[in-house]
Simulated assay, not measured.
Amino acid sequence: MKAINFSHYRKIVVLTGAGVSVASGIRPFRGKGGLWNEINPIEYADSSLLKTNPRAIWQLDGALRKQLATAQPNVAHIKLAQFEAKLSPDKQFTLITQNIDGLHQLAGSSNVIEIHGNVCRTRCSNPTCNLTAYLDSNPYDDVLPICQICSSPLRPDIVLFGEHLPVKEEWLTKRALRDCDLFIAIGTSGTVYPASGFVRSADYAGARTILINLEPMEPKNPYFKEEYLGAAEEIVPLLFGATS
């Protein structure tokens, strides 16, 4: 396996999934060891719970907040941040993440699009409320937090099942993909919509497309032209070993 010669590329897009954060102690939701193998996501992560049982959402995401209080970026996060920092000014680098843990930013990545939100932000569940989402580490173990503006329940600033991607993040993602020349997906099954369609957009733009994942994609996605199997923290330093 050789490091990618990044001198050939000007607009680089990286998509990351749960596999990037496993080495930091964050469990994935799907696949081997995935959280959804043990609990029903409809009972803890569905948008309908905002009206029927908002405490259930906090049970799951509050526990993740407590875990993130001590979690640290691993070598995959750090290598991607270092890669971005060392790129020459004539290159564009966009990191799109499905993760809600904020570890990319903690590692130093700056141009990050969080398409599923960030569990360490809180916002109002009332879509008409003008409360601005804010950083928040409180797990709310024993109380349901209430908005001081409209008295609606507060919620983690993440995308729940049944919700659309945030408009701004979706637009930024489409803009990055429409003219990228290198697309690399890391630690993601590549099967969950809408992220599953990103590689198709990149391929349509003429980009080189690479999948880095612990397990092979089943069924294969024909838009990924290259596949490297292994843990993100092992493969990323090898492929991102050279910048220019």
Rank of each mutant, 00 (worst) to 15 (best):
L64I: 12
L64N: 00
L68N: 01
T70D: 08
A71K: 08
A71S: 08
Q72A: 12
P73Y: 01
N74P: 00
V75A: 13
H77D: 07
H77A: 02
K79D: 02
K79R: 14
Q82W: 02
Q82E: 15
F83K: 06
E84V: 08
A85D: 15
D90K: 13
D90M: 00
K91E: 11
Q92A: 15
F93N: 07
T94N: 04
T94V: 15
L95F: 09
I96N: 07
T97W: 06
Q98V: 06
N99T: 11
N99W: 06
I100F: 00
I100K: 08
D101Q: 06
D101L: 08
G102C: 10
G102I: 01
H104N: 10
Q105K: 15
L106Q: 15
S109T: 01
N111Y: 06
N111C: 11
V112L: 09
E114T: 13
E114V: 09
I115W: 02
I115Q: 04
H116P: 12
G117P: 09
G117C: 13
G117Q: 10
N118L: 03
N118P: 00
V119K: 04
T122P: 00
T122W: 07
T122Q: 11
T122A: 10
R123H: 09
R123G: 12
C124P: 09
S125N: 03
T128R: 10
C129A: 04
N130P: 01
L131D: 09
T132Y: 01
A133D: 01
Y134L: 05
Y134G: 00
N138M: 03
D141L: 13
I146R: 09
C147Y: 08
Q148Y: 10
Q148V: 13
I149F: 11
I149M: 09
C150R: 03
S152K: 09
P153G: 06
R155Y: 08
D157H: 13
F161K: 07
G162F: 06
G162N: 08
G162P: 02
E163T: 02
E163Q: 04
E163P: 01
P166S: 04
K168P: 00
K168Q: 14
L172M: 15
L172T: 04
T173M: 12
R175S: 13
L177E: 07
D179H: 14
D179N: 15
D179V: 04
C180R: 07
C180S: 13
C180L: 12
D181E: 05
D181R: 04
L182I: 12
L182R: 02
F183V: 11
I184A: 07
A185T: 14
T188S: 14
T188L: 11
S189N: 05
S189F: 06
G190P: 11
